[in-house]
Amino acid sequence: MTVRLTVRPLTLAWVKQHLHTGEQIVGVEELQGGITAEIRKLTIVTRDGDTRELVLRSFVEPAHRERAEDSLTREAGALTQLAGTGVTAPGLVAVDPTAAHCEYPSLLMTCLPGRTVLTDGGVETRVPLLARQLVSIHALRPAVRPPGYVTLTTADSVVVPTNADLAAWAAAVDMIRRPAPPYQGRFLHRDFQPGNVLFGVLPSSPADTHITGVVDWAATSWGPADLDVAHCCTNLALLHGPAWGRRFAEAYEEAGGVLAADASERSYWMVRDPLAFSEEVAVIARAWRESGRPELTTRAVEERLDAYIKMLLS
């Protein structure tokens, strides 16, 4: 087989340095769904004629390269610490966070089985599985804590959608003008949502749906569990309807997770995350359309975001 030239020459040479003796790259496939990085699945033939797969993540776009070193260093650290825990994540093969060897900052890792599932069908089965998985992540106590969480959204950077409920959005923005509430730190994925969770789904037996792994640990942080929960809530609300955002928070507590006890503190975290989405609705909607949800136009996602903000404030 001929390798399609979708991996740049320097990066390809770097990858080959980390293969086992006698292995060859025989296929390269672009993986959809990535927003900040270019992702490739590499098919490798071993010396014995078997095949295995690796995943290559490269930060190509100038807008994202400035944070590439931090992101790849975080991800490499997280993958190393997750090895041997009950949380299934890719195995780290190699990392070049400053592009010392590759054209762009890159990370090479093992490929997990399973696939992302963003369809409405079966969401009632997947939500409890997602909740239990996140509780397991938050229960980890790493020997070395990752850096503290960062929230890039401010009250002044929120983008109010066209035809949104202005009063509701003004009230939501006022909420995040307050200082962040105190919290008990937890190990956070920081981008835990259906697009970063792989499922094994048997068509003949939907009840046997199970999680096969969690990917994209580039934003791993230390902070409040509420942040991770709120982020997944927002994704579910925009993918499947606002009620699924509220349902995930309930499922997380049913699975043993602990959120802020004070209602105003919980509301602070729950509102902050959807406000952050307001700044990149078009990018997120495009990624979802490319992943098989053509009906999720920018306008459709904005309408769900507005409805979710109003629901949270009701």
Rank of each mutant, 00 (worst) to 15 (best):
126 R>D: 12
30 E>F: 14
253 E>T: 15
241 G>Y: 03
95 V>S: 12
219 A>G: 11
223 G>E: 01
133 Q>D: 00
69 E>V: 06
202 L>P: 02
160 V>A: 00
274 P>I: 07
163 N>S: 15
116 T>K: 09
35 I>Q: 05
31 L>D: 11
298 T>V: 08
28 V>Q: 05
257 G>Y: 00
12 L>F: 00
274 P>G: 03
24 Q>A: 07
81 Q>I: 00
10 L>N: 05
184 Q>D: 15
24 Q>D: 02
186 R>I: 05
294 P>Q: 13
242 P>W: 02
122 G>Y: 12
242 P>M: 03
57 R>P: 01
228 D>R: 08
200 G>Y: 03
229 V>A: 11
239 L>R: 08
30 E>C: 13
34 G>C: 07
291 S>I: 01
269 W>Q: 05
155 A>H: 05
166 L>A: 15
24 Q>F: 01
131 A>G: 01
31 L>V: 15
31 L>K: 14
229 V>H: 06
86 G>P: 03
62 P>K: 14
259 L>Y: 08
183 Y>H: 14
121 G>P: 02
127 V>C: 06
43 T>D: 10
63 A>M: 07
286 R>C: 03
156 D>E: 15
32 Q>T: 09
142 P>S: 06
272 R>L: 15
279 E>Y: 13
292 G>P: 09
217 W>G: 03
54 L>K: 12
258 V>P: 01
85 T>E: 11
209 T>H: 06
314 S>A: 15
43 T>P: 00
269 W>A: 06
189 H>E: 09
193 Q>F: 12
254 E>M: 09
78 A>V: 06
120 D>N: 07
92 L>T: 05
142 P>G: 07
230 A>S: 13
269 W>G: 10
295 E>D: 12
25 I>V: 07
42 L>F: 06
74 R>G: 05
307 A>H: 04
42 L>K: 07
204 S>K: 09
173 V>G: 02
284 I>V: 15
81 Q>A: 06
306 D>N: 14
287 A>N: 06
184 Q>E: 15
109 M>R: 11
1 M>P: 06
152 L>Q: 11
193 Q>C: 11
169 W>C: 08
137 I>C: 04
60 V>N: 04
130 L>E: 06
151 T>I: 11
142 P>N: 08
176 I>P: 05
217 W>H: 05
113 P>Y: 10
192 F>R: 09
173 V>H: 02
227 L>K: 11
96 D>H: 11
254 E>R: 12
86 G>C: 06
78 A>G: 03
227 L>W: 10
25 I>E: 01
103 E>A: 14
73 T>R: 01
105 P>L: 01
258 V>R: 14
56 L>K: 09
111 C>S: 15
192 F>W: 12
304 R>K: 13
131 A>M: 02
248 F>D: 04
227 L>V: 08
170 A>M: 03
130 L>Q: 08
102 C>T: 15
196 N>S: 07
273 D>W: 03
196 N>W: 01
150 V>M: 03
215 V>K: 13
307 A>D: 10
61 E>N: 13
240 H>K: 01
165 D>W: 04
159 V>M: 09
89 A>S: 14
100 A>V: 02
14 W>M: 14
141 R>Q: 12
217 W>D: 01
265 E>H: 07
18 H>M: 09
266 R>E: 02
188 L>P: 01
302 E>A: 05
268 Y>C: 07
241 G>M: 06
212 T>V: 02
77 G>I: 08
149 Y>R: 07
256 G>Y: 14
113 P>Q: 10
221 S>K: 07
240 H>A: 00
